[in-house]
Design a protein around this nucleic acid. Structure first.
Lengths: 204, 204, 204, 204
DNA sequence: AATGAATGAGGGTTCATTCAT
DNA sequence: CATGAATGAACCCTCATTCAT
C-alpha cells in the first residue's frame, strides 16, 4: 500500500521521457517544449512535467540515459559476439546502423539532445560509452594496429570518420529492414577495406 | 563623392550577417536570437536588424548565401585543379576539411542553418552544390566506377559515408594549420583506399 | 467542495472580457492592447491574457459573444412583446436606443469590434441577428409594406437610415435615464412618421 | 529662383496628404502607418513625411482640412441654391449623399480620422462646419419650426438622426451614379416626411 | 501525486520619430 | 529640400517555472 508510491512516479517519468523522445525526433530540440511534450503524452498541464523533473535539462538527461540504455542493450551483445579486431569493428558499425531500424526515434532524439546548446559532459559511464563512441573506436583501432590487424593510419581520425559516416548513413530515413541490413554490411565492408593492413611489397 | 549610396547599408548587412554566423556557430540555431546577434555585433537594438532584414528567415538566407559563397570560393579552385576521378575525390575531401581551418565558424553555421526547422530547399545552383554534397559526390563516384577508377560499392552510400566522415572530422576543433593539412590528406587517403578498384586475382 | 473545477478560469475570462469591453469603449479597437487590458483589469502581466485566450482574435470573439448575449437578452423581450408591424418597428428602435443606457460600453465596444480590420463574418445566428440589424429591419419593413402597414419606399435604404440614426443618437453620451426614454420614443415616432402609409387622396 | 521653395514644399505636402487619404480609406485608421503612406506615395522613406509634418496628428489634421475643404466646395453651392427650409433640408441631405459618389475615398477617410482615438476638437470654422453637421442641421430645423415649415420634434435629436442616416447610407459602396442620385432623393424625401408639419385636425 | 492558474522574461516584429549627412 | 540609417518603445505571443490547492 506504500510501496507503489515510487512505482507510480517511475511510470509517469517513463511516460514523459518516452513522449519527449518522440517529440524530439519529430520536431527537433528547438521546438521541443513542455507544452508539446504534455500534449503528446496526453497530459493536461506542463506543471506535471516540472513536478517530476527538476529542470528541462534534467528531463533531457533522463532522455539521454534512456536512449543510451536501449542502445547499449541492443548493440552490446552484437559487439561482444564478434571475434577479432576486424570482426569487432565490423560488428560495431553494423550494429550501430541496424540500431536505427529498431529505434528510429531514439537515434534522432539522441542527436537532438547531444546537439542541444549548452549541454555539458555526460555523467555516468554507460552514457559516456555511447557518447564517446569515438574514443572507444579509437582504442579498438589502436589495439588492432598493435596486433597487425589494421594498416597504418591515425586511429583518432579514423574513429571520427567511421562515427561520422555511420551517423550520416543513419540520418537518411531507411526504406525497409532489408535495405538497412544491406547498408550495415556495406558500410562495415567499406571501413574494413579502409583499415586493411598495408599491402605488402609487390613481389618481384 | 556621392556614388556610395548604399555603402552604409551593405556594410551593416555584412556586419550583421557576420555576427549571425559567429552566434550560430557558438550557440546553435535554437539559441540564435536577435538579441544575441545585436549584442555580438555591438548594436544597441534588435530593431536595427529588423530594419535591414525583412525577416529572421531573410537574415538566415543571407547567412546561407554568404557561407556558400565563401565555401565555393575556397573549394572551387582546389577541386577544379585536380585530375582524374581519384584525384578529384581526393581534392574534394581535402578541400572540404581544409575549409574548416579557414572558416571554422562558417562551417558550423552552415550546419546550423541547414538543420533549422522549416527550411525549404535552396534556390540557386551554387547553394544546392554545397548543400547537396552527397548527390554531387555520388555522381562523381558513379562516373568513376563506370571508368574503372573505383571498385564496386553503392555510390550513394559511399557518398553519404564520405560526407559524414568529413563533417565529423571537421566538427572537432582543429589544433594548428599543420594538423589540419595532415587530417585532410589522411582522410582523403582513407577513402581512396576504401574506394579502390577491386583487387585483381593474385598472379600465380 | 470539489465540483468547481474551472470556476476560477471562467471568472478570469469574464473579468478579462469585461475589462476588454471597457477598454474598447474608451480607446477604440486600434488602441486596445493587451497591456491596457491588463492594466484595466488589475492584472500584472499580459501573459495571463494569453494564458486564457488563444489569440487576440479569440478574446475579441469572446467579447463579441458577450456583448451580443447581453444585447439579445435586453432587446429580445421588448421586441417580442410588440404587436403589429408598426409596433415592432417602434419597439425595435426604442429598445435599441434604451440598450445604450443599460450597457453604454457594450454598444461602443460592439461597434469597435465589428469595425476591426480583418474580422470575418460571425458564425452563430444570434450574432448575425445583431450584426445584420439592417437586413433584419429591411425584412420587417418589406413585410409591413406587403401588408399595407407602411408606405412606399426602398426598404433597404430605409433600414440603413434607421440603423444609422439609432447609432448616431446612441453615440452621444446620454444624460439621465429619463432623457434616454424620451429619445427612444421620439426616434421611434420619427420613423413611424417617415414610414407611414401614403396619404390617401383628400376626400372632396 | 527663391520663391519656389514653398511651392515645392506645398506640392509635397499635398502629395502626402492625398496618399494618406487613400490609405485611410483603404485600410482604416489603425493600419495607416507612415510606411504604408510612403509606399503609396512612392516615397522611399518615412523620414520625408516626418520632415514635412511635425507629427502624425499634424498630418491627420491636414488630411481633415483637405477633406473638409473639398466637401465644402462640393456641398456649399448645392445647399445655397436651395430655397425654403424644406428645400434646404432636402438639398443638404442630397448633397451629402452625392458627395460620396464624387469623393468616395475622402468620405471614408473623414470617418476614419474622426473616429481616431484621442482626436481633439477641430480648430477652424470650416472644419467645425462640416464636423458639426449636427449643430448646423439642428439650427436649420429649429428655424424651420419657428416658421411653421416643420412639425414638432426635438431638433437636436432629429439632426442627429438625419446625420446618422446619411452616414449609414453613404457607408455602403454605391453601385453607379444613377443609384446614388436615387438614394439621395429618397433619403431626402424620407426626412421631409419625418419632419412634416403636424397633420391638421381632421375637419368635421 | 497531481493540478492548473499565474508569472516574468524573452521571442520577433512594427512603428513614429530623430538626426547626421 | 531630401535622405535613410538608427532608435527605443510597444506590440502579441510563447516559454519554463512556481505555488497554492
Amino acid at each position: 500500500m506504500q510501496a507503489n508510491r515510487s512505482v507510480t512516479e517511475a511510470a509517469r517519468r517513463r511516460q514523459i521521457v518516452a513522449a519527449t523522445i518522440e517529440v524530439l525526433a519529430e520536431v527537433g530540440h528547438g521546438a521541443t517544449t513542455f507544452t508539446r511534450i504534455a500534449r503528446w503524452a496526453g497530459l493536461s498541464s506542463t506543471g506535471l512535467i516540472s513536478y517530476h523533473f527538476a529542470d528541462k535539462a534534467d528531463l533531457l538527461d533522463e532522455v539521454l540515459a534512456e536512449v543510451v540504455r536501449a542502445a547499449v542493450a541492443f548493440m552490446g551483445p552484437r559487439i561482444e559476439a564478434a571475434e577479432g579486431h576486424v570482426g569487432t569493428l565490423s560488428a560495431r558499425i553494423a550494429a550501430n546502423v541496424e540500431l536505427v531500424a529498431e529505434h528510429p526515434a531514439h537515434v534522432r532524439a539522441l542527436r537532438e539532445v547531444l546537439a542541444a546548446p549548452g549541454r555539458s559532459a555526460p555523467a555516468d559511464d554507460a552514457t559516456a560509452g555511447l557518447t564517446d563512441r569515438v574514443g572507444a573506436l579509437a582504442a579498438l583501432l589502436r589495439d588492432g594496429q598493435a596486433h597487425g590487424a589494421f594498416g597504418s593510419f591515425d586511429p583518432e581520425l579514423m574513429a571520427l570518420a567511421v562515427t561520422g559516416a555511420i551517423d550520416a548513413v543513419v540520418a537518411v530515413p531507411p526504406a525497409g529492414e532489408e535495405q538497412v541490413r544491406r547498408a550495415a554490411h556495406e558500410l562495415a565492408a567499406t571501413f574494413v577495406r579502409a583499415t586493411a593492413p598495408d599491402a605488402p611489397e609487390p613481389r618481384p
